[in-house]
């Protein structure tokens, strides 16, 4: 197949992929440097900037907050998103067409606008804890991933299996957990992991919903970069890249990475 492609185009593609991967290799190199300033190629190899992450209280705290928010928001999105995706596939004729649009609104409305609106009209207006707005904000932005991935899994599910179980006397909830859920298990795992990484990396919602006493890891990274130019941020970036690799491995085993190209 490749023989039909102009060599210039192949060279261009090679350059594009160097452009894509190069900067991340530079971050990795900078993280391993033994210097107090950011540099590449690394001068002297050391892992001391990785130790520094956990020596800084703000990083320890925000890593925990980010993990907590990601875990909780993803769980919320799964608990409400799986039934929603099921309804959209199983009872499509009952439901109005705009409902599926409603579930993709969180990716259509600019995240900054959503974050600001949650701050202004939920947290401040009703004097409610900012943590709640942060949590629901994250649940909202990961909901479209959950609905989309679960819908894709359900598209290949044969609903007559479910009907067979029900007609043989299995109660609806039991059918859901013993027949439907095991059949879309890989979709659930993929949805979970994609939602999780989206939440961990989020800036635009969180930037408005953090403040003294409550911050997430990406926001702390931004704050650290404005004051210091040491390799700590590079080290945290490497930890996040390791997480990305783990996510990719899970997606590949469940949906296949080509799912992301659909």
């Amino acid at each position: 197949m490749t023989r039909n492609i102009h060599p210039l185009l192949i060279a261009g593609t090679a350059l594009v992929f160097m452009f894509l991967v190069g900067p991340l290799i530079i971050v990795l190199g900078a993280a391993l440097s033994d210097t107090t300033y950011l540099t590449f190629p690394p001068q002297g190899l050391s892992l001391r900037w990785f130790e520094n992450i956990f020596a800084i209280d703000a990083f320890r705290r925000t890593i925990l907050t980010s993990l907590q928010i990601a875990l909780l928001s993803t769980t919320i999105a799964l608990i409400i998103g799986i039934p929603a995706a099921y309804a959209l596939n199983r009872h499509r004729i009952q439901l109005p067409g705009w409902l599926s649009t409603l579930f993709i609104l969180p990716v259509l409305v600019p995240e900054l606008v959503l974050g600001f609106s949650l701050l202004k009209n939920v947290a401040v207006q009703f004097n409610s804890p900012i943590y709640l707005s942060l949590l629901f904000g994250h649940a909202l932005i990961v909901l479209p991933y959950v609905v989309r991935v679960i819908s894709a899994s359900l598209a290949s599910f044969d609903f007559s299996i479910e009907e067979a179980a029900i007609s043989l006397g299995s109660p609806p909830l039991k059918t859901f957990f013993t027949v439907l859920l095991p059949n879309v298990r890989s979709g659930v795992i993929a949805a979970f992991i994609l939602a999780f990484i989206t939440s961990i990396n989020d800036v635009s919602i969180s930037i408005f919903l953090t403040g003294p006493g409550l911050s997430t890891l990406p926001i702390q990274l931004l704050a650290h970069m404005e004051q210091f130019f040491d390799p700590t941020v590079a080290s945290v970036s490497v930890l996040l890249m390791i997480l990305t690799v783990a996510v990719m491995a899970v997606v590949e085993r469940t949906l296949g990475l080509t799912f992301l190209a659909k």
Partner: peptide
């Protein structure tokens, strides 16, 4: 049945996105 299953997600989007925005 469809509405019952879709309502929690619908509620979340309406209450925490549509109305505040």
């Amino acid at each position: 049945a469809g509405w019952t299953q879709a309502s929690p997600a619908t509620l979340l989007v309406v209450v925490f996105l549509v109305l505040p925005v």
